[in-house]
Design a protein around this nucleic acid. Structure first.
Lengths: 206, 206
DNA sequence: CCCACCATGTTACCGGAGGTAACAGCGCAG
DNA sequence: CTGCGCTGTTACCTCCGGTAACATGGTGGG
């Protein structure tokens, strides 16, 4: 294990090409970037999943550690949640291509195919679950709720982060507020609007 | 447009093969199931995305209509939300392979690649956004919050639904409660647990 | 009656993907 | 010098999405 410089070197090349072409970059392209040919890659990583796995593992550790640290920050609960949200959004903002690699892996893997959460995100979900379990008293439903909520919050932030990166509807801080507000039950606390009896306009058609 | 029986027939075949092999079924397999060869499929649908699009459109309409109806049910807000959640979970429970097709399409499309939300889910997100905008008074932040929340809630339910289908940790009704509780701010309302100074046991290792 | 047309269907191919086999050098211990 | 392990190559396989070119058959207009 210790360092393994060749591997690192190849991963650097893979990193560059993924940064440039997004995930789904071909093995040929990665090999070319590294100045070599395919079979070497396969010798080192077994198959494409191996390469991608190694590549994601590299970047995952950083994000995961950051999220974990944020989850254990000694803050008021709301501030802690906002901090975690901000950490995640800042990370995906800083390097969108890498983030895509982590969050939207190419399919291929037959292991439980069809999961919304990529491995990196599953780890984050578990981290959230653990934090909830350790920090919040949910009574006897604790285990189920914390597991469900870990996945739910991860999926929620994933979808919201994707949309935010795509359309940039607001600065990051505002996005953090919007998400925290949702988690804080603002959806349930807000007042009703009177039912629309007949929309006078702005109803172009479905 | 009117009916187009051949197309329907081909879509039925595609449906069968997707039901059996999941999304990612090959064009050859679909053609074989239909008793014909590839070029005919391409004549009718242009390319793979065309076929998959037509296939999803078929199933989307039902789910989308059900969700839309649930969103406009004349119920107390909490009951309405629970109803929507239940509709969605019931749908994916009933036909998981079809649901996978709708929620986890194969990538391929360069159009905004890397989105967490498949087209069908994006439509659901828009429906939720619209419902929030029409039903809830969020002040001047309404537009931003409703859009953000539409995506967020969709992503949350997607991830939670995936996990639930996979591991079946509880009956559907309980899952609905867990998700509604999250949206109702139970995460913020619950009491703190005392900080763990030293976990006495049950810490097997990461 | 014949023909031109159109949808149906076919075979055979292309380029590019992941992946593998077989072979060619290089450096170094014994 | 010889064997061995690592690096590297070329050439190939299979399967995929997609296409070109050609072969049918029914149908309606001259």
């Amino acid at each position: 294990m210790t360092t393994e410089p060749r591997r690192e070197q190849l991963l650097n090349a893979a990193d560059r090409v993924v940064q440039r072409e997004g995930p789904g970059a071909s093995m040929n392209a990665i090999a070319a970037e590294a100045g070599i040919t395919k079979p070497i890659l396969y010798r080192h990583f077994g198959d494409r999943n191996g390469l991608i796995g190694a590549l994601t593992a590299r970047h995952t550790s950083g994000l995961l550690a950051a999220v974990r640290a944020a989850l254990n920050e000694p803050l008021e609960r709301r501030d802690r949640v906002e901090h975690v949200l901000d950490i995640y959004l800042a990370a995906i903002e800083a390097r969108p291509q890498v983030y895509r690699l982590l969050t939207h892996p190419e399919p291929g893997d037959p292991t439980g195919a069809g999961n919304a959460l990529a491995p990196a995100l599953r780890q984050i979900a578990e981290e959230i679950t653990r934090a909830i379990q350790q920090q919040i008293d949910l009574g006897q439903d604790g285990p189920l709720l914390s597991e469900t909520w870990g996945r739910s919050i991860t999926g929620m932030v994933l979808a919201a982060g994707d949309w935010w990166l795509e359309t940039r509807p607001c600065p990051r801080a505002r996005m953090v507020q919007a998400l925290a507000d949702l988690l804080w039950g603002r959806l349930s606390a807000a007042a009703d609007l009177p039912p629309m009896l007949a929309a006078p306009e702005a109803r172009p058609e479905a």
